[in-house]
């Protein structure tokens, strides 16, 4: 177990290095001058060169990369050109907000998704299955920003039950776990949960149908287990895959849905990324992508290790 975990952690190191290279290259491949957005259009060549030297943009690429990587390893991923604050500060605030939103959305999506998936898998080819499947297809195919707007129209504008946008009376600062703040979380989280709900429901349905068709289910019945007892076995067999899908979905949502966070003006990583792109804030963009990619790598690691705990066959394979 520990051996497998450490081996798996070692495997992630080259992946992380690759991620940093791609992050670095991606931004420099983009056309245009990184300073174009901070300097006035009529700035003199001397000032331009001074600024380039200040940010290190005049060095060769590999040197820039190594310096950037070295600093990143020490936790310094640059300074936002726009705000002048460290990128890490900007990101950690946004990550906290997105994490809250993503965790809640994944939890809702996982609960509903597994419920629909199990029901559909158990009652395959009945109307229950068709209803559950229709709902999950709706979940993966409806445009989420549109769904977000519809929900805002219904629950905020018409019914007035929930606030339409933002992250509480104090904006992105000063979040508290009370109803005044939490009510801002509900609409974006529900909108966001529709994606993982649909995907998890479809995966679990296929899984359950596949497991139920296996011989060992007959074996379980033959040794006298009740349907409830058999169900327990089905759950444990389905859990590793369902968890893996959930982990990957959480990873996607942690990236912050740019569209959903923009619709709800939720101050998370998606909105941050959106702003960084439109304001050509290269260090912020680079840093945000890096942190999000690292999140993904770590999350996959956690999911893999958790799977081996649930399914012993993976570990030795």
């Amino acid at each position: 177990m520990i051996f497998y975990a450490s081996k798996r952690i070692l495997f992630t190191l080259p992946i992380m290095l690759g991620v940093t290279i791609v992050c670095f290259a991606l931004v420099h491949l983009a056309p245009g001058d990184p300073l174009v957005s901070v300097l006035p259009p009529d700035a003199s060549q001397v000032i331009k060169e001074q600024m380039m030297a200040l940010y290190g943009f005049d060095r060769p690429y590999h040197e820039q990369f190594l310096r950037w990587l070295w600093r990143a390893l020490q936790g310094d991923i640059g300074t936002s050109i726009r705000t002048g604050r460290p990128v890490s500060t900007e990101i950690s605030k946004a990550v906290g907000n997105t994490l809250m939103l993503a965790a809640l959305a994944t939890a809702i999506g996982f609960l509903l998704g597994t419920l629909f998936g199990f029901v559909a898998g158990y009652f395959r080819d009945t109307w229950v299955d068709k209803a559950a499947s229709a709902l999950s297809v709706f979940g993966v195919s409806v445009p989420h920003y549109w769904l977000g707007m519809v929900l805002v129209i219904i629950f905020a504008a018409t019914l007035g039950w929930l606030p339409p946008t933002g992250a509480g009376p104090g904006g992105s600062e000063d979040w508290k776990w009370n109803w005044v703040h939490v009510q801002y979380l509900i609409l974006p989280a529900v909108t966001m949960s529709v994606i993982p709900m649909g995907i998890i429901a479809r995966t679990v349905r296929a899984l359950v149908a596949e497991i139920l068709s296996q011989e060992f289910v007959v074996g379980l019945r033959a040794k006298g287990l009740s349907e409830l007892g058999v169900f327990g076995h089905v759950v444990k067999n389905a859990a590793p895959t369902a968890l893996a899908v959930m982990g990957i979905q959480l990873g996607y949502l942690l990236g912050g849905s740019i569209l959903i966070e923009t619709v709800f003006a939720w101050p998370g990583t998606g909105l941050l990324l959106n702003d960084a792109i439109f304001q050509r804030d290269l260090p912020l963009l680079q840093g945000t992508i890096l942190v999000l990619a690292m999140f993904f790598v770590v999350l996959n690691l956690v999911v893999d290790v958790m799977q081996t705990i649930l399914d012993p066959r993976i570990q030795r394979a």
Partner: peptide, 27 residues
């Protein structure tokens, strides 16, 4: 229902052709 489940495996039990498939892989 429950009476059938009590009967299976207790009064009459069964051995399958392919134990790899007939045993639950994760227990």
């Amino acid at each position: 229902g429950a009476a059938l489940a009590d009967f299976r495996g207790k009064t009459v039990s069964m051995i399958f052709q392919e134990p790899m498939l007939a045993l639950d892989p994760v227990y």
